[in-house]
């Protein structure tokens, strides 16, 4: 039986050794957290950076914009991430938290992402206005007299006779997603503002307005389909009467199966999103922890790689991945700001 006992002792010892090995460990690679929308771009740059420089490839985690900010703002030191990606601008509350924890940051805007309302190729063409989107998806809408009533619409043609006669069935991301935040802010709020009563409410009580404009109906017309946009695409193919909400890069990759709805007269195309004609698009950002520059090797070089024309330019490799670049003038200004590590103040 001595053999058994020896085996046990060896296992326990090995356990103790690997436990203690973890404690002392200096970090030499950049750590990036944040938005799943920026993840494809951030990882592409990270890979290029790892291949073309002597630095190790940065580790990129997909935690969502909010989760990334939380980790990023937690403090200064090598156990905290160096860069966070966000599919929206940093919130004032998050900035204050960062400042409180002594984190100084530089903001870099990297480009745009369109949010698409897509339908299967075999489905009808959709031409929507933001007002119609609001009427289709809001939990409460104003009636003729301006009083809020529960959303009575069950088919698109009830909203406007020009729309197809089909059930309102929209597959979209859950509330934890940055895509949902942006969609609500851009499309739903934009639609809500078209109503006189809601416009007046916005002036008098911004909170109450947001409560109305941001509330998506919960009676089954809007279906939370999870954060996986590929899944939404598959479901749209299976059900040509359903409409899906997802990022532009997924339309770009699946243009043979899915078509995008016109919103306010503009098709969701690369050109329209870049020029701002397509209204449902948002800016993408990343934030750099300035104190880590110099401590963690390679941060400056990584920022330089990300903001180089071969990456985020009109013909850069990020465009192949679906990023919609900033106009050339903005890019130049942003690169100066980013490589100079200009502090962000709010």
């Amino acid at each position: 039986m001595r053999k058994h006992r020896l085996a046990f002792a060896a296992l326990a010892l090995a356990g103790a050794v690997i436990l203690s090995a973890g404690a002392a460990h200096a970090r030499d690679q950049i750590r990036i957290v944040g938005s799943s929308t920026v993840y494809p771009f951030s990882t592409t740059v990270a890979e290029q950076f790892g291949k073309s420089t002597k630095f190790p490839t940065p580790v990129v985690e997909s935690t969502g914009s909010g989760g990334g900010m939380k980790l990023f703002c937690a403090g200064v030191g090598e156990q905290y991430p160096d860069i966070t990606n966000a599919s929206r601008r940093i919130k004032k509350s998050e900035f204050e938290k960062c400042t409180k924890n002594g984190v100084a940051i530089t903001e870099v805007k990297i480009g745009f992402d369109g949010i698409v309302l897509g339908i299967a190729k075999s489905g009808p063409d959709l031409v929507l206005s933001k007002k119609q989107i609001f009427l289709a998806l809001a939990k409460q809408i104003p009636d003729a007299a301006g009083n809020l009533i529960d959303n009575p619409y069950s088919t698109w043609d009830q909203i406007d006779p020009s729309l197809p006669k089909m059930k309102i069935e929209v597959l979209g991301p859950p509330p934890t997603s940055g895509t949902r935040d942006a969609f609500v802010e851009l499309a739903m709020e934009g639609g809500a503002k078209k109503f006189e009563t809601l416009k007046a409410l916005r002036k008098s009580d911004k909170k109450a307005f947001k409560a109305v404009a941001h509330a998506i109906r919960e009676d089954g017309a809007y279906i939370e389909a999870g954060e996986n946009d590929n899944l939404i695409i598959q479901k749209l193919q299976a059900n040509p009467k359903a409409v899906g909400i997802f990022g532009f890069s997924f339309l770009d990759q699946n243009a043979d199966k899915i078509k995008g709805a016109k919103v306010e007269g503009a098709d969701p195309t690369f050109e329209n999103i870049a020029s701002g004609d397509y209204g449902v698009s948002r800016s993408l950002y990343f934030y750099v922890k300035r104190q880590h520059v110099g401590t963690i090797p390679g941060i400056e070089e990584f920022v330089a790689e990300f903001t180089a024309d071969r990456a985020w330019g009109d013909e850069g490799y990020l465009v192949d991945k679906g990023l919609i670049p900033l106009p050339a003038v903005d890019r130049k200004a942003m690169r100066t700001q980013a490589t100079g590590l200009a502090p962000l103040s709010m």
């Binding site: 990270a46 490839t57 990129v60 997909s62």
Partner: peptide
Amino acid sequence: MVAFIVDVPGGFT
């Protein structure tokens, strides 16, 4: 551990 990691890990840390 839900992260983009290119380099094949060489150790426990």
